[in-house]
């Protein structure tokens, strides 16, 4: 029945055993996550998301309130491993910023924020080998991936993201199979 499901993009299927997962890592991944603390991180999450999708001539992630959505998703829709990975990642990031710049992320300059995000983006790389994939399945996705994924979804499905950065048609009323692309054509927010 669900035609959409069948047409969905290919999901990476992971097989094979995990060799790399040591005991401590496993504990970190599967322990009961401290989800109540997430709300305290809202301002930080908003700032992080805003570096991923900044304000330009259209609103940024912070403008559309992506933080609320990210917290909802991590609390209610993430695997336990990803919840732990995300919370651990927030702590790691704060510690890294403190160590490197001796202030909070929120207080950093935009260049410093970008440098921090680059660091965490790089940390999330080298994750496409067979062992890395299998390890991800057991230990969870890297912090940066989770942050970026929910920033993306939260932004593009928000009122101002969908209608200002993208184009959204509530009731199209018609289907036209062929139109010419305009200059600075925006993509459709939904399909």
């Amino acid at each position: 029945m669900n035609r959409k499901t069948a047409l969905k993009r290919i999901v990476l299927l992971t097989t094979g055993l995990v060799a790399a997962a040591g005991g401590v890592k496993l504990y970190q991944a599967y322990k009961k996550p401290g989800l109540v603390n997430l709300d305290d991180y809202q301002k930080l999450i908003d700032e992080l998301a805003d570096v991923i999708i900044p304000r330009t001539n259209t609103p940024g992630a912070k403008d559309v309130g992506v933080g609320d959505f990210i917290i909802n998703m991590v609390k209610d829709c993430c695997s336990r491993q990803n919840q732990n990975s995300f919370i651990q990642g927030l702590g790691d990031l704060e510690a890294y910023v403190k160590d490197k710049y001796n202030r909070t992320f929120v207080a950093c300059t935009i260049d410093e924020k970008i440098a921090v995000m680059k660091y965490f983006q790089n940390k999330s790389k080298n994750n496409n080998g067979t062992i890395a994939k299998a390890s991800r399945k057991v230990l969870g996705d890297p912090f940066f991936w989770i942050l970026k994924k929910y920033t993306l979804i939260g932004y593009c499905t928000s009122l101002n993201g969908a209608t200002m950065a993208l184009q959204y048609d509530y009731v199209p009323g018609k289907y036209i199979g062929s139109i010419a692309i305009k200059n600075e054509q925006k993509g459709w927010a939904t399909r």
């Binding site: 900044p54 993306l152 593009c156 692309i181 054509q185 993509g187 399909r191």
Partner: peptide
């Protein structure tokens, strides 16, 4: 069916963030 990829298809796969990332996920 055929479609032009949008943010759902390409967003998480892009090794990028910031203004250039935003540009790519908001165009067809």
């Amino acid at each position: 069916g055929a479609f032009r990829q949008n943010w759902e298809d390409i967003g998480t796969g892009l090794d990028d963030f910031g203004e250039s990332f935003k540009q790519k996920i908001t165009e067809p």
